[in-house]
Design a protein around this nucleic acid. Structure first.
Length: 142
DNA sequence: GAAAGTAAAAAAT
DNA sequence: ATTTTTTACTTTC
């Protein structure tokens, strides 16, 4: 359970062996601890390419889990549209967005790499934060 | 079960 | 460039 400062926000991770939750907040939720997750996140937020090969404990519905698993396959520095994910799962883009909106593990499951085709999509912690994350990975949006 | 609410897309205007 | 269908899944009665 750690909090890492990035810009003006803190990124919190909850869970020991398996990650349960990850989210942004203005204040730190936990004490910073030096650990495997923390070190990787420090490098990630510095702009390095990092693979988050951790185990997750997803307390979500089957459908949402499928969407999140598909999202995890998106490589660093690439983006997908809601439609692309939807086609792989044989569902509708709208349902994908619905599922991603409930992603309990921000950043580690790269839901910020999923954008809309016409609009830019949305983000639970603010569209600006989503842009900042994409910029960090070298993706520029119109 | 039915109805409302979406982090969408495509089509129409 | 905005508005209006169409759409499938979750959430909440």
């Amino acid at each position: 359970m750690i909090s890492i400062k990035w810009g003006s926000v803190f990124f919190n991770v909850e869970g020991e062996e398996k990650i349960r939750r990850a989210f942004f907040s203005k204040e730190p939720f936990f004490e910073y601890k030096r650990c495997r997750i923390g070190e990787k996140l420090e490098r990630y937020f510095r702009g390095e390419k990092v693979n988050f090969d951790f185990e997750f404990e997803l307390s979500v519905s089957d459908f949402t889990r499928k969407v999140l698993e598909e999202t995890m396959k998106i490589p660093y520095g690439e983006i997908r549209t809601y439609k692309e994910i939807a086609e792989k799962l044989e569902t509708s883009p709208r349902a994908v967005g619905r599922a991603l909106a409930k992603n309990p593990i921000a950043v580690l499951i790269p839901c910020h790499r999923v954008v809309g085709k016409n609009s830019l999509g949305g983000y639970s912690w603010g569209i600006e934060l989503k842009r900042a994350l994409l910029k960090l990975e070298g993706i520029y949006l119109p």
